[in-house]
């Protein structure tokens, strides 16, 4: 067991709380992809879930690199597909990638960070990034659990 990471079922069906460190991203994508499989997602969708969740975690970790507040992932499967919320409290997020995804200016971000949101957009059906009360942001993505994905 690794100190710091926790997965538990709540209203959101799955909640993962973990330190903003790279070594936890693998565990998070495995947990969320397992939930997708439980809801009958085919393997193509599971791969999309893994990549989208990882990119969201990478972005959140980058924004919280100097912080100690845990990141929180909540996931819920249902008739509308899989909804995943990535919540972070980093102080830099607002002016970098918050707002409507289509209006995010990624030119000033490091190369891989600049790619993260466009990659997520290419994998999910819906993507929203909204300010979080008290600072930071919530990145919400919805993925259909089967069939074609219509990028937002």
């Amino acid at each position: 067991m690794t100190e710091g990471g926790a997965v538990r079922a709540r209203e959101a069906e799955l909640e993962v709380e973990f330190p903003p460190k790279p070594e936890f991203v693998r565990m998070v994508r495995q947990a969320v992809s397992a939930l997708a499989r439980l809801h009958g997602a085919d393997e193509d969708v599971v791969e999309n879930v893994k990549l989208a969740v990882s990119e969201a975690c990478n972005t959140a970790i980058a924004q919280n690199a100097l912080g100690h507040e845990p990141l929180v992932i909540q996931a819920q499967g249902g008739a509308n597909g899989l909804i995943v919320d990535v919540m972070e409290t980093g102080p830099l997020r607002d002016h970098e990638v918050s707002g409507p995804p289509g209006e995010i200016d990624t030119d000033e971000l490091p190369f891989d960070h600049a790619l993260a949101v466009p990659i997520i957009r290419g994998l999910v059906d819906e993507l929203t990034i909204t300010p979080r009360e008290g600072g930071g942001s919530v990145l919400r993505m919805r993925l259909s659990l089967g069939g074609e994905v219509s990028p937002s």
Binding site: M1, T2, G5, V7, E23, F24, R26, M27, Q30
Partner: peptide, 9 residues
């Protein structure tokens, strides 16, 4: 608590 696993590369 979860095991984040070994380096897998």
């Amino acid at each position: 608590m979860l095991d984040s696993g070994p380096v897998d590369l």
